[in-house]
Amino acid sequence: MQPITVLDTLGVALAAANVDTDQLIPARFMKEPRSVGYGQFLLYDIRHDERDNPDPEFILHRPHAGDAQVMVSRRNFGAGSSREAAVYALVDYGFRCVIAPSFGDIFSSNAVNNGLLPAVVEEDDAERLLSALGDTTAAINVDLEKQIIRVAEVEVSFSISPVWRIKLLNGWDDIDMTRQHAEAITQFSSDYVKQFPWVIATPPSASLISKG
């Protein structure tokens, strides 16, 4: 995964609470292979009418919205089913960070595993950011090292699990995290075998096999 240290980019405001995974990517699109690009399905039923015509007033259809890498929303973002495709849709569209007062637990885990930063802010701070972004795209700075978000004159802090922070800063997955403890794991294995040698299966000797 690509590491995240500081995102100095454009942000968009999705001023809605309880944006669930079925809204992020409707189930009917999940039969498509990831190779087609799930970004085209992001929030599809919200940003299109019943005839599949795009709503020109929707934030993702505004000028330069396609260049935004940060989305700010309200509480309980990513609630609902555990579909990882919801994160695929955001990542394939180009987002690298979503800011909200709270997230669905499984969504957050899926996000980190796909290099998407779920930044948790206080509800009042989310409203300040939404107001600063308005109904268009605006410059936003997300500093994962300092855990600070800036939009114009608004500056707020955000929280994230320390383990997730390390993974995103380094672009690590779970295997990479385990590798950081390779020396300790090797030493533990060696010490354990010395203490309990009987746990290691000993293959029968060649002589016993030949006699059998």
Results as ranks from 00 to 15, higher is better:
61 H>T: 02
61 H>R: 09
62 R>Y: 00
63 P>W: 02
63 P>K: 03
63 P>S: 02
64 H>A: 13
64 H>T: 10
64 H>N: 15
64 H>D: 11
65 A>M: 05
65 A>S: 10
65 A>K: 00
66 G>V: 04
66 G>S: 08
66 G>T: 01
67 D>R: 14
67 D>F: 09
67 D>E: 14
67 D>A: 13
67 D>K: 11
68 A>T: 00
70 V>T: 04
72 V>I: 15
72 V>M: 10
72 V>Y: 14
72 V>L: 03
73 S>E: 14
73 S>C: 10
74 R>G: 07
75 R>V: 15
75 R>P: 14
75 R>W: 12
75 R>K: 15
75 R>G: 15
76 N>Y: 13
77 F>L: 10
77 F>V: 04
77 F>K: 01
77 F>D: 03
79 A>R: 14
80 G>H: 13
80 G>L: 13
81 S>G: 08
81 S>P: 08
81 S>T: 04
81 S>A: 03
82 S>E: 14
82 S>C: 15
82 S>P: 15
83 R>V: 05
83 R>H: 06
84 E>M: 08
85 A>P: 08
85 A>F: 13
86 A>L: 09
86 A>E: 06
86 A>Q: 12
86 A>H: 12
87 V>D: 01
87 V>T: 04
88 Y>T: 06
88 Y>Q: 09
88 Y>M: 09
89 A>K: 00
89 A>W: 00
90 L>T: 02
90 L>R: 05
90 L>F: 04
92 D>V: 02
92 D>P: 05
92 D>N: 08
92 D>E: 06
93 Y>G: 00
93 Y>K: 05
93 Y>C: 00
94 G>E: 03
95 F>D: 04
95 F>E: 07
96 R>D: 11
96 R>N: 08
96 R>I: 07
97 C>D: 11
97 C>S: 14
97 C>N: 13
98 V>K: 00
98 V>D: 02
98 V>H: 05
98 V>L: 05
98 V>F: 01
99 I>S: 03
100 A>K: 00
100 A>H: 00
101 P>V: 02
102 S>Q: 11
102 S>H: 10
103 F>G: 03
103 F>R: 04
104 G>D: 07
104 G>E: 14
104 G>T: 01
104 G>I: 05
105 D>E: 15
105 D>G: 09
105 D>K: 13
106 I>Q: 08
108 S>Q: 09
108 S>Y: 07
108 S>I: 00
109 S>D: 14
109 S>Y: 11
109 S>K: 15
109 S>V: 10
110 N>K: 06
110 N>C: 09
110 N>L: 07
111 A>Q: 06
111 A>T: 02
111 A>S: 06
112 V>C: 07
112 V>S: 03
